[in-house]
Amino acid sequence: MKSIVFDMPKFSLLLFISCFLWGILGTAQQKNERESRVTEKEIPENALILLKPYLEDAKRLRYYQESDGDKRSFEVKFKKGKLRYSVEFSPEGKLEDVEFLIKSTDIPDETWEAIQSEFQKKFSKTYVKKIQQQYPSEGRAESEVLKEAFQNLILPYIRYELVVAGKNQNHHRLYEILFDAKGELLLLREFAPTNYDHVLY
């Protein structure tokens, strides 16, 4: 037994260092979707010029770059008034969409009823975690889209992007679901489950 006592510190140290090195070496072999904070200078100039009039009184202004394989985009996030905005641009500085956080009570009754009826078809139980009102650019005049988004107008082309915890056949999963202005389902995407063991234990 005595020999175990003497060997254990060395063994633990060796085990920890081995795992650490394995992690470092393995990192170089992976390619993943990434989101990272960038500075204002890294955002395309035309995007900043377009957005500048709307950034007056903006708080918590942050710039991000997202890359998923070959696809890249920039996002400008900020809080203005009581709303949290997210404006997405292509690498060339073209407006892709404007989103801001809302509550279910901000959605017109008919649309919300259609969304809920879609939930009932797909899930036995749902819990809405986040709703964003989205103004996709999709060939529209960029200045018009921005103007309409910052006026919070409810128009036929807007969309609602929801993050929903849904229960189905005893499975609890997290989904991103996109609806059009009438509450018609456009896209349903499942989130990859996150591992929480590093915090939990």
């Binding site: 990192t27 979707e33 990434r34 990272s36 904070r37 991000y64």
Partner: peptide
């Protein structure tokens, strides 16, 4: 770094 945890 950023709003969600990416590899690295």
């Amino acid at each position: 770094q950023g709003e969600k945890l990416d590899v690295g």
